[in-house]
Each structure stands twice: as C-alpha cells, then as structure tokens.
C-alpha cells in the first residue's frame, strides 16, 4: 500500500479521501430525514408530539456521545504516538460511551412507545423514529468498528504504525457525533422550546 500511497496525485491516502467523500454524501442522507421531520413536526394525527421529549434525559445521553468524541480523538492521538495500549483503552472507552448512548436511545424509544408514540401512529412519529433510528444504526456500526479495531490490534493485525485505521474510524465516529449535535438542537431543543412558548 505504502508505495501507492506515495504515488497518489493529491499526496494523501486513498482510504482517507474515500472516507471524506462518503461522509460528504451522508449529509444528503440525514438532511432528507431531518427535512421530513421538520415538515411533520405538527402532523401528529392526534397522538403525542414534541412535548413527549424528556430533554434532561436526552441532554445527558447527548453529552455522553459528545464526550466520546474526546476519547476517540485521544485514541487516535495515542495511536499516532505508537502507544497501542493507551489507544485500546480509549477505544474501549469510546465504544462504551457509544453503548451508553444507544442504551439511552433504546430506553427512550421504549418509554415513548409506552406513552403512545408509535412508528405507525403519525407522520411525526414515523419521521422521529426513522431519523433517530438511522442515527442509532450509524452509532451501532461505529461500535462494531471500534470493537473490531480493538480486537485486531490485540491480534497484531493492526500495528503501531497504522494509525490511519484509527483515524478513519475516528472520522466516522466524529461524523456520527456532529450529526447528533444537529439532531439534538433541531429535533429536540428547538421544537421543544417552540412548543413551551
């Protein structure tokens, strides 16, 4: 790989360029879901609307996800210094926070279901569940990647000098995080405040 990496036209690794290319397209993906959600904010078909959100609870899980970006970047930082032991630690911490976030989401979904917000209940409910659900799937894939990274670094498949792999998974993870930064504000906070007013 290395020989080719040096020969690249733009002087950067194919894989990193590919990851950024892919992330660029992901905005179009989440954007469509967010648009549908915004269009359907009031379309609750008599069922629960945004007032069902539990902002303090979601704030905590959002905060956990935000902080997982810190541990992720520390994992990459450790790896780039060749410190695989510390890298593994931070990777596990990141995956752990991801799981906490996902657990929170599962709990939140369960509560909402019990309170009558169901996927088939209204366009509002559909767009909420599908949007946050797809974000959850992205987090889940991220956790799988992190755990693979952890395992492969134990088996020696990932070497101290290959911090590009950690960086790539990090890019994906941070991306999933910034999508949540948007979702937290646009899906939860702003509609909730607008309703409270």
């Amino acid at each position: 790989m290395s020989a080719e990496a040096h020969a690249t036209t733009l002087g950067m690794d194919h894989r990193k360029l590919a990851m950024w290319t892919f992330l660029g397209s992901e905005f179009l993906f989440f954007g469509a879901f967010v648009s549908a959600y915004l269009l359907y904010l009031d379309t609750t078909a008599g069922g629960p609307g945004v007032e069902i959100f539990d902002i303090p609870f979601t704030s905590v899980s959002s905060f956990v996800l935000l902080m997982s970006s810190l541990t992720m970047v520390l994992a990459h930082s450790a790896h780039s210094r060749g410190d695989l032991r510390r890298m593994r630690l931070w990777v596990l911490a990141t995956a752990g926070q991801g799981m906490v976030f996902l657990g929170g989401q599962v709990f939140e979904f369960t509560v909402f279901y019990r309170e009558g917000l169901e996927l088939g209940g209204s366009p509002f409910a559909s767009s909420f569940f599908v949007l946050t659900g797809f974000h959850g799937i992205h987090v889940f894939v991220g956790i799988l990647l992190l755990l693979s990274l952890y395992t492969l670094s134990l088996t020696g498949k990932i070497k101290p000098n290959q911090d590009l792999k950690t960086e790539m998974i990090g890019l994906y993870w941070h991306f999933v995080d910034i999508i949540w930064v948007i979702i937290f504000t646009v899906v939860y906070l702003i509609p909730e405040i607008a309703v409270l007013d």
Binding site: L10, G11, M12, K16, L17, W20, T21, L23, G24, S25, E26, F27, L28, L66, S69, L70, M72, V73, E167, G170, L171, H174, F175, D177, I178, V181
Partner: peptide
C-alpha cells in the same frame, strides 16, 4: 468537532471541501 477532532483545520483543504460541499448542497 469538525475542525479539531476531525482535523479539518490541519488537513488538506480537499477534505473540508468534501465535507462542507456536501453540507452546503
């Protein structure tokens, strides 16, 4: 997050273009 954790501030501008291009579109 994008600038620091994803290193956009320090990396090749083409990455920023990919990201903000997609976002703007």
């Amino acid at each position: 997050v994008a600038g620091w954790f994803m290193h956009l501030k320090f990396d090749s501008p083409i990455f920023s273009r990919m990201m903000y291009g997609g976002l703007t579109l």
